[in-house]
Amino acid sequence: MPKKGNRKRLKFRAEDVCSESVTVADYANADPAIVKSGRVKKAVVNAIEKEVKLLRGLEASQGPVQEVLSSVVSVSGEGCDSSDELDPEDAASGIKGSRKKKNKRRKENSECSDGEEYPIDIWLVLASYIRPEDICRFALICKNAWTVTCTAAFWTRLYRRHYNLDVDLPLRLQPDSIGKMRCLRACVIRSLFHLYEPFSARVSKTPALPESTPTSLVNSKCLLFWVNKVIGNRPEPMWEFNFKFVKQPPKFKNGSSRGLQLPVEYTEVHTNPDSDCYLLQVTTLNFIFTSVVMGMTLTLFTINVSTDMRHHRVRLVFQDAPVLRGKKPRSDQGTQVVLDPVHSVRLIDWWHPQYPTSANT
């Protein structure tokens, strides 16, 4: 068996390397299994250096050749082989040089980070070409773009651009009602789910009860609760239990919620009594007596199989205070509302066409 020290190393000659066989892909896409160290061997670098000299006629000058080699190595992101390492002084000088270049780039970027501030009229003109689904992205460009989305002119133009006489709109979403400043933004958003085809298609494709409903409604406050009698195809009527919830916004250490302050002159435009509200509709086959839960916080919401194995069973637990994050609610505490058997469960957002709006919107 030959000893490890007697193994012969492959030698690279300048004649073996030609301009056609050396490509950037040889370095950028080098196989780590072949080049274990992940670096370009010094023999290959010397061969390329000689080839570059022959091609460009730079035998006398060393500077340009070194620049060409440094550019090749920088593109590949690899240095010499671990067996032929550079001197410590050269490596230290190279690291210092790279740090200086990075610092210069950071200074240049910091000097150019201020950018150009355009007047708000330009942003208002650009807003006339924004699709409804891109309003959020447009508002995140800068503060002036966000201010434009707060104006009454922006929402009025958006409504006129998509208004269609052939669409049957509710009375509160007709052009005469849209002309009012109060709740203008909420009315325009609701009208888009009637007028704008991508939004109306989204309503039809959305399931009646999303999978995230049990967790999304936790710690929501019940504002209203009422029961409707539904006459359907069955000989006996069904009963619809409606729970109107509102999500409580997270509070921070200073007691305020995060976000920009709306301009005072456009406060009525963004007024929406139903903001962050949901309507949970539970349709049962029989009338069920329930406790009064208005003003209480929902801490548990489960949907299971009914006792007859043909319908569902809904269980709601309400408490006076929300449950802290990370703690599980106790089932024996609070007020429980059990609805069984349940025919259907629906969750309706405030912008949904079937959401019952408030009287002052």
Rank of each mutant, 00 (worst) to 15 (best):
M1C: 03
S19P: 05
V22W: 06
T23R: 11
D26M: 10
Y27F: 10
A28V: 15
D31Q: 04
A33L: 15
V40E: 00
K42E: 08
A43V: 00
E51V: 02
V52W: 07
V52F: 10
K53A: 09
L54A: 13
L55A: 14
A60V: 13
V65P: 09
V68P: 03
S71F: 05
V72C: 07
V73R: 00
C80S: 08
D87P: 03
D90S: 12
R106N: 06
R106H: 04
E108P: 01
D114L: 12
I120Q: 11
W123T: 06
L124V: 10
L126N: 02
Y129P: 10
P132Q: 02
I135N: 06
K143F: 07
T149N: 06
T151C: 07
T151V: 10
R160W: 06
D166I: 09
R172N: 09
I178N: 11
K180R: 10
C187L: 14
P198Y: 14
R202Q: 12
N219E: 05
K221S: 08
L224Y: 11
K229I: 14
N233H: 03
V246Q: 15
K247V: 04
K253P: 04
S256T: 05
Y266E: 03
Y266H: 04
P273I: 02
S275C: 11
C277N: 04
L285A: 06
N286F: 01
T290P: 09
V293F: 01
V293R: 00
M294Y: 04
T297I: 15
T299P: 01
F301Q: 07
N304I: 00
S306G: 13
Q319G: 12
D320P: 05
A321L: 11
K327A: 12
K328P: 12
S331K: 14
D332V: 01
G334R: 00
P341M: 00
V345R: 07
D349V: 05
W350N: 12
S358R: 07
